[in-house]
């Protein structure tokens, strides 16, 4: 029952954050959204994801959004969308969500021990990773050793993006 309440909170927060004309209030509501999302992740036993959600979503993103807000105006200007466009947007959104929902139909149920994610390579990692890599944490072993090149690529992309942001922002000062 608490799960349903939390998901309901999420929907209410998201709709309210979109409807709000004061952008600072929208940012506050997004902070609440992140905290509730973190609880949902914890309910699903994904503690590390919950931790990332709370620190990035509720901590850093709020600060970045406020920093962006301080360089622009606080109030959103009212703009009218013609009803014909609204119809087109609504149709596209409904079609996309129908396709996405159709994609979830043949997924295994939550916590199913026979799901491919639990039966394919996970048992081997659990048995062999300490002998082969020597790291006690299986997640760390997979990320840093078995998928080492993949992680190296991701880190390179983020490093490059960080350098670009620093270069862009330095020119202004």
């Amino acid at each position: 029952m608490i799960d349903f309440a939390l998901l309901f909170f999420l929907v209410v927060c998201a709709v309210a954050a979109i409807q709000m004309r004061d952008l600072l209030s929208s940012i506050m509501l997004l902070g609440i959204y992140s905290f509730i999302m973190a609880v949902v992740w914890t309910r699903l036993n994904a503690v590390d994801v919950a931790f990332t959600e709370a620190s990035v979503g509720a901590g850093i993103t709020t600060i970045l959004l406020i920093a962006a807000l301080s360089r622009t105006r606080r109030m959103e200007t009212k703009q009218c969308v013609p009803p014909a466009n609204l119809l087109i947007y609504g149709t596209v959104i409904l079609l996309t969500s129908a396709v996405l929902l159709y994609g979830t139909l043949d997924m295994p149920t939550y916590g199913d021990p026979g799901a491919p994610a639990h039966s394919h390579v996970a048992p081997r990692y659990l048995e062999k990773s300490y002998e082969e890599v020597g790291v006690p944490n299986v997640v760390t072993a997979v990320l840093a050793s078995y998928r080492g090149y993949d992680t190296l690529g991701e880190t390179t992309v983020i490093f490059g993006a960080g350098i670009c942001v620093i270069l862009l922002l330095r020119r202004k000062i």
Partner: peptide
């Protein structure tokens, strides 16, 4: 971590 966003605000 709770108070970080409040401080920024």
């Amino acid at each position: 971590m709770n108070y970080i966003s409040t401080l920024a605000f």
